[in-house]
Design a binder for these strands. Structure first.
Length: 434
RNA sequence: GGAGAGGUGCCAGAGUGGCCGAAUGGGGCGCCCUGCUAAGGCGUUGCACUCUUACGGGUGCCGUGGGUUCAAAUCCCACCCUCUCCGCCA
């Protein structure tokens, strides 16, 4: 949620910033108008309320003084004012709800240095990396034996069983088997151990309350994208960013304790409503996947270096895994609603012949913290200030799994995996036919 | 799931429907005293919204949400959470 005060004090700046991501200026005007109406109504209601309280106090005083007539008279007047106050309060509540709904639907202001653009086609590819690049190796060209999509490799080796996953849960719910399953586990272990130096490991709940989903901005706008368990009114998290953002919800942290750095592994659930066809084969797009997340609560001053740290760690893992990737700076038109700046990491998968998004590293400024009400008390003792939140995947395993299997496929059909996974899969890890 | 107890400020812990944003103690912070330390003395100690150029006001918050009342931490209802016992269970 953006700061309504900013709309109040500098509407032109908000309009200019939001125009970069396609929000009409009238929408900002509507917020400003509703805010003014709300405050006017609030002032009226509070004045009436103060009058009721003053009269009530006088009733008590008159009673104690033994003046029953005077007391009855004052009580009558207080009742009358109370009726007015009740009506005024209703108006205030209505306006407040409207204002909140509008603010929740308003996206974050993009960072000044986020590139302008209307959609994915305007994203800026910042850099590419591939194994051996530093030593002058040319960008790799996939050989014929690597041009086999992972769903074919997976079923040939018996490590990925999409048909049986579909039997259990419907399409787009993968079922990993044998070494395929071990590979997922190894990737999680690798990532968590790499982040353990600075990030506290968390195992959050996978099902959360509505408030928790609202804090990150996943509700109310993207309700169709999430699985909802109606009977208990719980939501399946689309990413552990959701529970991590709410971990300190409503708290006032000490500046000395910042940054708070967290890492978590969780299952992630996405309905992917409307998605079907070529883009969804195999593991390209699934309803459930496992992901290791990096997350930080920070002061505004700390935020940029943490954004860089999370990105560097995600890239570091891809380099260890030897997967060619590119870093994409999302343009204002493609930025998620809550984010001010986002870098996507995309891995090239030769068999699927696609760049696959395996991480999204975002800086939210105080947009999420305002919803979640997470603040810190400055070391100099001033009033509490909203924290900044940042997060990024490091990494999402379904697509990494796909890319590893495709790049690793040998002419004989076996799959050679990176040595970084040896601690969990043994020396020179290779997946052969069962 | 059943029975019982309880949820008050940073912590502990009082609280009769009006004089309670809340006693008291501890902690924190500031000052004083003491050569230093300990002890002691004095003071101070929430968050949010809102009005005002400012000084300074107003409103809300005693688990959450409703209700009763001229007036609610205090009475009523619902829900949530914690604890104890029982049941069930990986």
């Amino acid at each position: 949620m953006i700061d309504v005060r900013l709309v109040r004090d500098d509407p032109e700046r908000v309009k200019a910033a939001l125009a970069r991501r396609g929000v009409a200026p009238e929408d900002v005007d509507a917020v400003a108008r509703l805010d003014a109406e709300h405050r006017g109504a609030l002032a009226r209601q509070e004045t009436l309320r103060a009058r009721v309280k003053a009269l009530s106090r006088e009733v008590g005083e008159a009673r104690r003084a033994g003046d029953a007539d005077r007391a009855a008279e004052l009580a009558d007047e207080s009742r009358r004012v109370g009726e007015e106050e009740k009506a005024a309060a209703q108006e205030v509540d209505g306006l407040a709800a409207d204002l909140r709904a509008l603010l929740l639907a308003t996206p974050n202001l993009p960072a000044d240095d986020a590139p302008d653009g209307a959609g994915p086609e305007d994203n800026v590819a910042l850099r590419r990396w591939w194994p051996g690049q530093d030593d002058g190796a040319p960008e790799p060209v996939a050989a014929g034996h690597q041009r086999v999509p992972h769903w074919e490799v997976g079923s040939a080796l018996g490590i990925l069983d999409m048909p049986r996953g579909a039997r259990l849960a419907g399409s787009m719910f993968p079922l990993y088997r044998g070494d395929g399953s071990r590979l997922v586990r190894a990737l999680t272990s690798l990532a968590l151990s790499r982040h353990a130096d600075a990030y506290e490991e968390i195992r959050p709940p996978t099902l959360v309350l509505t408030d928790t989903m609202v804090s990150t901005g996943h509700l109310p706008k993207f309700a169709d994208e999430a699985y909802h368990i109606e009977r208990d009114d719980l939501w399946a998290i689309p990413t552990s960013e959701v529970p991590l953002t709410s971990m300190h919800r409503g708290e006032i942290l000490e500046e000395a304790d910042l940054p708070v750095r967290l890492t978590a592994v969780s299952q992630c659930f996405r309905r992917e409503a409307g998605a079907a066809g070529r883009e969804t084969r195999g593991l390209l797009r699934v309803h459930e996947f496992e992901k290791v997340e990096l997350f930080a609560y920070a002061t505004p001053a700390q935020a940029p270096s943490l954004h860089a740290d999370i990105l560097a760690r995600a890239e570091g893992l891809l380099r260890e895994l030897g997967l060619p990737y590119r870093v994409v700076d999302l343009c204002t038109g493609d930025l998620g609603a809550s984010a001010a700046r986002t870098f996507d990491l995309e891995v090239y998968a030769p068999g699927s012949d696609q760049w696959l998004e395996v991480s999204s590293v975002s800086w939210f400024r105080d947009y999420q913290a305002r919803r979640a009400n997470v603040r810190f008390r400055p070391a100099d003792g001033g009033p509490p200030v909203l924290v900044n939140t940042l997060n990024g995947s490091a990494l999402a395993w379904s697509r990494v799994w796909a890319a590893l299997v495709e790049w690793g496929r040998q002419p004989d059909g076996t799959v050679r995996l990176p040595d970084a996974l040896s601690p969990w899969l043994g020396p020179e890890p290779t997946i052969g036919p069962r």
